[in-house]
Design a protein around this nucleic acid. Structure first.
Length: 476
RNA sequence: GGCGCGGUAGCCAAGUGGUAAGGCCGGGGUCUGCAAAACCCCUAUUCGUCGGUUCGAUUCCGACCCGCGCCUCCA
């Protein structure tokens, strides 16, 4: 069943309609995090794009089967857990849990399956055995197993690499840094499927036909994607940096064995910049969700900002942008609140509108069309705001219909609205001051009234007068 | 060097061969005792530079300048 949803495919470098077999789920695999520390906002940009993609599929009426792995065995997790003197499991469990908490705060739908590499060693060993059998892999003297890149004729097709250049790149690129353990390889381009145990790995080794060791990075995704979703995926997703070598290697591994395409569609999201600069540890701009919360930003604003640029364009993440995102979010809430009032509903009723089944888009058709057109979220947001301005006063029934359509869009975008009810408790002293001000104002003693207002402001409280009475708001 | 992406108002960011969405900020107005909040309105004769194609280009082509990514384990 073809849908109207179309998406850019990295392999063919063109837009393709998303297709799914009748009655089937759309099966897609996303390369997940390496759990050796907190994920940063750049990681989350990628995962959020995938989240919006999945939600958009659901709104389009497509069932989804979403698999995202946890990489829990690699150089970094092993090194760091050893350094901290804890077991690999305890270490990766801790960071997996943190990742889950961040995801929940960013309102991401959990994948249907979240396999970890350590829990799928047998599947990886099996795939490596098959690769050796069909002549695409070889064992080295130390018990490591390598993929013979020259044996796979289409190597480089995803990244569109020139095979000639590939042969010589080792001399011209900066890849010379880890030559130390490369002497076992037949060719500089060959990559490890299985790494023989080394002393610094500590107890983190598993038995295999080639001796104790651990799987290479690329093999885990090939093995787990195949295990959960079959030989050919409907879509495979990740950050743009995974195109080469990770996804290229996955293709080489899986397709050498199955003789079938690994994925019908490849989805890659562009990188994030911070304040116009690339993110890097040395610049100190690798923000985590925790960092931003400490600075007083809400996860909702972070989510809004991270999805507010087109996924194939680099996005500039700035503090101003975060404030703008927050204001935009508030504007959305006001707009929805006004519609809710016209439909005789309350903000607490909003949740019942946020769901993927939509009957009619009405004036929000253009916003939905934008999402279907290569997941153009910025355009969709633009249409939501501009269409909303046309509404004005409507009937109860019409506003109900509008809310349903808007609820579908907000479901697709995954924006959490009306979810900050934790009103800060107002101290007695502030209550008294505010009451005194109100009294003075009623007595038309505006001088005293304004003095009370200034006093409240000094204590960080803003008075908002209404027709009858007032409310207090905590100023940051 | 190879492959790829981008340069649109103060900031962020869509978009189209026919003359620039949206958000933020700023300005003006309505309301208010004054504010705040809310609501309404306004804000790029112009899309990195220079050429070319075209009746017409920000949109296509070429050159150049600037920024960015990947080129073996980084989403």
């Amino acid at each position: 069943m073809p849908t109207k949803l179309q998406l850019f495919d990295t392999l063919s470098r063109s837009l393709h309609p998303i297709k799914v077999k009748d009655g089937d789920s759309f099966r897609f695999y996303c390369c997940g995090p390496t759990v050796y520390g907190p994920a940063h906002i750049g990681n989350f940009r990628t995962f959020l794009v995938q989240d919006v993609f999945r939600r958009t599929l659901e709104v389009a009426g497509i069932k989804t089967h979403h698999v995202r792995n946890i990489t829990d065995v690699d150089d970094k997790t092993i090194r760091q857990s050893q350094a901290e003197g804890v077991t690999l499991k305890d270490f990766t469990d801790k960071w997996t849990q943190k990742f889950h908490e961040d995801c929940a705060q960013l309102n991401m739908l959990p994948p249907h399956e979240e396999p970890s590499a350590v829990q799928h060693i047998p599947q990886q060993i099996e795939l490596i055995e098959q690769l050796i059998e069909c002549g695409h892999a070889y064992t080295a003297e130390d018990g490591s197993v390598y993929y013979k890149v020259s044996s796979f004729k289409n190597y480089g097709k995803l990244a569109h690499l020139d095979p000639q250049a590939l042969k010589t790149q080792s001399t011209s690129s900066s890849g010379a840094t880890n030559l130390a353990d490369e002497y076992e390889r037949e060719s500089i381009n060959d990559f490890a499927l299985w790494k023989a145990k080394k002393p610094e790995d500590g107890p983190n080794a598993w038995p295999s036909p080639w001796g104790e060791g651990r799987p290479g990075w690329h093999i885990e995704c090939s093995a787990m994607a195949r295990h959960y979703l079959g030989d050919t995926l409907d879509l495979h997703a990740g950050g743009i940096d995974l195109i080469f070598p990770h996804h290229e290697n996955e293709i080489a591994q899986t397709e050498a064995v199955t003789q079938k395409p690994l994925a019908h569609h490849w989805l890659h999201s562009a990188h994030l910049q911070v304040e116009g600069q690339k993110m890097s540890k040395s610049l100190g701009n690798l923000y985590t969700l925790e960092d931003l919360k400490t600075q007083g930003h809400s996860p909702a604003a972070v989510r809004y900002l991270l999805i507010s640029g087109h996924y194939r364009q680099p996005l500039n993440f700035t503090a101003d942008g975060l404030k703008a995102a927050n204001s935009a979010l508030q504007k959305l809430e006001k707009l929805i609140k006004s519609l809710l009032e016209q439909a005789n509903k309350y903000p607490s009723d909003w949740a019942s509108y946020v769901k993927p089944d939509i009957k009619a888009w009405g004036i929000f058709q253009s916003a939905w069309d934008s999402l279907c057109n290569d997941l153009n979220i910025p355009s969709a947001l633009g249409h939501i705001f501009s269409s909303s301005r046309e509404i004005g006063q409507t009937t109860e029934e019409k506003s109900h219909t509008l809310l349903q359509a808007l609820g579908g869009l907000i479901y697709a975008l995954g924006l959490p609205l009306f979810e900050t009810p934790e009103k800060v408790a107002i101290p007695d002293s502030i209550q008294k001051l505010a009451a005194a001000r109100w009294q003075a104002k009623q007595n038309k003693d505006f001088k005293a009234s304004d003095e009370f207002r200034d006093e409240l402001l000094k204590h960080g409280w803003q008075v908002l007068d209404q027709k009858e009475g007032y409310t207090l708001e905590k100023k940051p």
